[in-house]
Simulated scan of single mutants.
Amino acid sequence: MTSHVIADHPVQVRTYGPVPTELIAYAARKVDVVLRHAPAAVLFVRIKISHDQGSAPLAAIVRVDVDVNGIDVHARAAAPTLTEAVDLAQRRLRTRIQRTHQH
């Protein structure tokens, strides 16, 4: 497990399988872009990145867990590549945080 700080948010990053360091930084930046527009204080961020180089068609899985002022927001995505999984997780996180703000 590694820790990063993006903006003012401490982030825990856990990786499973072969995950390049550049991809970890990429994921942290993509999550930060969404969190800059969070409707309330972000108290906790965890990113889990899993990569199975086996024959599975969706070998890359990214999960993002965020605590936005006491409200848990989760986004999960699976894709053929790590970059695609990160991008999809970012879109889902953005949508879920927007929905949280509307309610």
Results as ranks from 00 to 15, higher is better:
T21N: 08
H37I: 00
Q53P: 00
P18C: 06
T95G: 14
R63T: 08
V31N: 01
D67F: 00
R92M: 12
D72R: 14
P18T: 14
V64M: 04
T95N: 14
I61Y: 00
A79K: 13
Q102N: 13
I97Q: 06
A77T: 13
V33L: 04
V68S: 03
S3R: 11
K48R: 13
R96W: 05
Q102F: 09
M1D: 02
I49Y: 07
I49E: 06
T2G: 12
D87K: 05
Q90N: 05
P18M: 08
G17N: 07
V34N: 06
L82A: 08
V62L: 03
I24D: 01
A28T: 03
D8F: 01
V73W: 15
I97Y: 04
R63G: 04
P57Q: 08
A28H: 02
I97K: 07
T100P: 00
E84T: 00
I97L: 13
L23S: 11
D65C: 01
R94P: 00
P39I: 06
A56H: 10
H37G: 01
G17L: 09
D65K: 04
V31T: 11
L23N: 02
F44K: 13
R36S: 09
A75Q: 11
V86R: 03
R63Y: 04
V5L: 00
I97W: 04
H37D: 08
P57V: 06
Q53W: 01
L35A: 03
A77G: 13
P57W: 06
A7M: 01
R63K: 11
R99M: 09
L43M: 10
L88A: 13
P20Y: 12
A40W: 02
R29N: 12
E84F: 02
H101G: 11
V62G: 03
A59Q: 10
A79W: 12
L93M: 07
A60E: 05
Q98E: 15
P39E: 05
I6N: 01
E22H: 11
I71D: 12
G17I: 08
R91S: 13
A78S: 15
V86A: 05
L58C: 02
A85L: 03
K30S: 08
R36K: 14
V64I: 15
H4V: 07
P10V: 02
T21Y: 04
D8N: 12
P39Y: 12
Y16N: 14
H101D: 15
G17H: 05
T81I: 07
L43R: 15
D52G: 09
A25T: 15
V13T: 10
Q98R: 15
T15L: 07
G54T: 07
A85S: 09
